[in-house]
Amino acid sequence: MRRFSVPGPVDLLASLRPLVHSAQDPTIRLRRDGVVRCSRTPDGPGTVEVMREPDGRFVARAWGPGAAWLLDRAPALVGGSDDRDGFVPERHPVVARAARRRPGLRLGRTGVAWDALVPTILAQRITSGEAARAWTRLVRAHGEPAPGPYELRLQPAPERLAALPYWAYHRFGVERARAEAIVAASRSAAHLQQAIDEPSPRASARICAVRGLGPWTAALVLRIAAGDADQVEVGDFHVKNQVSWALAGEPRGTDERMLALLAPFAGHRGRVVRLLLATGVRAPTFGARQRIVAVERL
């Protein structure tokens, strides 16, 4: 068990929401006052519980072979290592307003690339609802019971997913292209884990070198696993429009326009995106009202 403090406010729901990949995600339980999640750490599987105490401090408990590893990183998980140095929200009034409304939004660091890889690949090219269903069904079918008392299920092991033929993914609503990307990522899991400790450009390049993984996947994996506050999901179907609308009043944008608008916040561009989306910024919608997450390079 570990007790620790995190300076400043921490909004657990807003900060850790990217770790929840479906409403029935078997790998995590997130509440306003705490989180329980399981992970395949470099030391083995484990489950960690982090709860906020009445005095504002946190207490962490963990189970399984990866328990000590998870306890060491519990503060980073809830944003304790999130470095806001150089972030000046006043460079744009909308960003300043979002920062005031969400002062407790932190960028956490899980320290495990694998946790984010498969759910991110599943979200390529389809709606968020389809991705959520695929993730839940895949974990229930090929995951394992997690250590500890919470009856969570571990993410499927890389070697298990690497051994599945592409057609075995069809029952989860996953077509051949994404299935082959999952298999390629599974075979490169150790290589991808090493990437999150690299400087940002090199880390992105190492992830994108794996078949079926492009800049969108790399950005989300690095923001979650490495806590990289500068990662922007280039290639997302909607984010470029949300940023263009929020920062320039333009209902439609391009990736290039989005990056230009975010340039004054270099080093914290991903933080700005998180703040804008967390405060409900929505560009005007035209056409069908379904949320396609991303169109990734495959």
Rank of each mutant, 00 (worst) to 15 (best):
D11F: 12
P119N: 10
P119D: 13
G66L: 06
R97S: 13
A74L: 06
G111V: 05
V118K: 10
E53V: 11
A116V: 13
L16T: 06
P18G: 09
A67G: 14
A74S: 15
V95C: 13
F87W: 10
S39N: 06
I121L: 15
P54Y: 05
P103Y: 11
L71Q: 07
R101D: 00
R106F: 05
L117I: 05
P103K: 10
D83R: 14
A96D: 14
D83V: 04
A14P: 12
T110S: 13
A113Q: 09
F58C: 02
G46P: 02
V118Y: 11
V48R: 04
Q24F: 08
L107G: 08
A23W: 01
I121T: 11
R17E: 08
V36I: 05
G64L: 00
F87H: 05
L105K: 03
R40M: 01
D83W: 02
E53L: 15
L13I: 14
A62E: 03
M51L: 15
A60M: 03
V48S: 04
I28E: 06
Q124W: 11
W63K: 06
G104I: 03
A67C: 11
R37I: 03
C38Q: 02
D72G: 14
V95N: 14
A123S: 15
I121P: 06
A76M: 12
T41A: 14
A99I: 03
L70I: 01
E90G: 00
P26R: 15
D83A: 08
D82V: 00
R37E: 00
L117Y: 00
R109C: 09
R73C: 05
G104E: 10
A60V: 06
P65L: 01
D55M: 10
D33I: 03
G44M: 10
A116G: 15
L70Q: 02
T110R: 00
L13W: 13
R29V: 13
P42K: 09
T110Q: 07
L122M: 07
G64M: 00
F87P: 11
R52Y: 05
E90W: 02
P54G: 03
W69H: 14
G34S: 01
R109V: 08
D115W: 12
P93H: 01
R102M: 04
R91W: 01
R57S: 15
T41I: 07
V20M: 06
S39F: 12
T120Y: 08
L122T: 09
G108I: 01
V59E: 04
A76F: 05
G56Q: 04
P89S: 13
A67Q: 09
L71K: 07
L105Y: 02
L12N: 10
S22I: 12
D85C: 12
G108P: 04
